[in-house]
């Protein structure tokens, strides 16, 4: 079954053609980062306008690259939430119109379920139960999946999502946008033990908080400069990253232990982070847990993960009606 996946929930217009939830024939992403950079964050109206302009040419490109025509497509999968309502609406409306014009089934996909299924693209079907750690620009979330398509949220961020915190700290340090990858690169040259930033481990349960850490970074840099010293930014980056990642790994492993699962699945843009990948992999191995991590290029938003999740939803008989709307706050589960 050949599925066209469409993702427009934030600032990437992404389209993919995927066979049977596994073979990625085309996976095109038109990043709008350059449009939003001067504003220091994603501007919803700017994002929505760009999605509309990108979609149709991107569809032709995706078809060409996958050696497919519209006649070969068997279903359309699209992100229906969560995300920016105006941005979602462009992708959803186009998906519905295409599904209708071509007489194909439509399947709406939860964006975070898409991030989970990025793993399936790379590793094949993953049997529940598992714990998923979803960490991206808008989410930091620990989820228990006791059976297929069932999700129970164990904990989430009380303030900034991890990607958001990476982006803000990167901006404060004068790095580019989006800041996560830049900070990751800078941190590779720094000493993670240079500065002992606070770990928010004292919080109960599986919730996360990064506002204290963010403030600590700002305070440290400002204090150093007040003393007439320019702090080594690579050390600040590495130490900040270490503080974020340590807590994330601790809590994810605790969640797996407490729910009694032997599988951990990672998803979301921040999973592209080299330190998170490395530490999670070491600690999972020590604990005898199977860890699934998408390749970095499938961590950030893409259409292939949506096509993949859509394939599994369709296979169990799910269908989405043509009057579906955008769900900016769609809960997972």
């Amino acid at each position: 079954m050949r599925i066209l996946g469409i993702e427009t929930s934030c600032d990437e217009t992404a389209l993919a053609v995927v066979d049977d939830g596994r073979a990625v024939l085309a996976n095109l992403i038109s990043s709008q980062a350059h449009l939003h950079e001067r504003f220091g964050g994603v501007v919803p109206e700017v994002a929505s306008r760009a999605h509309l302009e990108n979609l149709n040419p991107l569809l032709d490109l995706a078809l060409r690259e996958s050696g497919t025509t519209l006649k070969d497509i068997d279903a359309i999968a699209v992100t229906v939430g969560p995300g920016l309502v105006g941005a979602l609406l462009v992708g959803i409306t186009a998906a519905k119109a295409l599904a209708f014009a071509l007489g194909l089934p439509l399947i709406g996909v939860h964006h975070l379920e898409g991030h989970i299924y990025a793993n399936v693209l790379a590793h094949g079907a993953i049997e529940p139960p598992f714990v998923a750690f979803l960490v991206s620009g808008g989410h930091t979330m620990l989820v228990h999946a006791p059976e297929p398509f069932r999700y129970r949220i164990l904990g989430q961020t009380l303030d900034d999502a991890a990607g958001e915190a990476f982006d803000k700290v990167a901006r404060f340090l004068g790095l580019g946008f989006p800041g996560g990858p830049e900070l990751d690169r800078l941190a590779m040259m720094g000493d993670p033990d240079a500065i002992r930033f606070p770990r928010a481990v004292t919080q109960r349960g599986y919730d996360f908080s990064l506002s204290g850490l963010k403030t600590a970074v700002v305070r440290h840099v400002t204090a150093e400069r007040g003393r007439g010293r320019e702090p080594a930014l690579e050390d600040v980056a590495a130490s900040f990253q270490e503080a974020v990642v340590e807590v994330q790994v601790d809590k994810t492993l605790a969640a797996a232990r407490d729910t009694g699962v032997a599988t951990i699945v990672l998803g979301g843009g921040v999973v592209a982070n080299t330190r998170l990948r490395a530490l999670m992999s070491t600690r999972a191995e020590q604990a005898g847990i199977r860890l699934f991590t998408p390749p970095p290029e499938l961590c950030t938003d893409n259409g292939a993960m949506i096509a993949c999740a859509g394939f599994y939803r369709l296979s169990r008989g799910d269908r989405t009606a043509l009057d579906v709307g955008a769900s900016p706050g769609l809960p997972l589960g």
Partner: peptide, 15 residues
């Protein structure tokens, strides 16, 4: 945007 997105996708899908 909804109208234009629907119309363009419809035209593209129907050729």
């Amino acid at each position: 945007r909804v109208g234009v997105a629907a119309a363009k996708a419809m035209a593209q899908g129907l050729g």
